[in-house]
Amino acid sequence: MRAVGVLIAIAMAIALQTTLARFLVAGTAAVDLVLVVVIYVALTGGAVTGMLAGSFAGIIQDALSSGVIGIGGLAKLIVGFLAGAIGQQFIVTSALPRFLTFLVATVVHAAVFMGLYVLLGLRSFPSPWTAILSQAVGNAAVGMIAFTVLESLPGVAERRRAKRRM
């Protein structure tokens, strides 16, 4: 059931991303909604769920983009694994740790993604730091809003407490 939820979330993120990208395409501070979903899923579902979601979402995103299929998948797989591991090892329930997790995860994603393209000699990214940092802040902000909205839904807190008791 959770897997279906994750797949729907990824599909919705890609649909929203392709819709919003039309209006953000000229800027470099675009938000990667698919990455936000992967980090969210990893933080709430753990490393395995995170890396499976990241791997799947990345490949779909690669297929819809004009890039090499697998580079985005690998980048999101690593981010999903790391974010999931952090979510399992540390208490990431307050605002600041969550914000930092989204921020760092976006930077790691960009480093792997751009690093692979540069390593393979397929693309160059001259002075990418402004774009990376603005996307990191954007992703973190959207991630925080997602956590706030989803946790305020009725019944979520109770279900989580009940799960912990079990």
Partner: peptide, 15 residues
Amino acid sequence: NVIAGGASPDFRTMT
């Protein structure tokens, strides 16, 4: 008509 933008912010494409 343009019906969608790029799926990844790293690629400037549209559909």
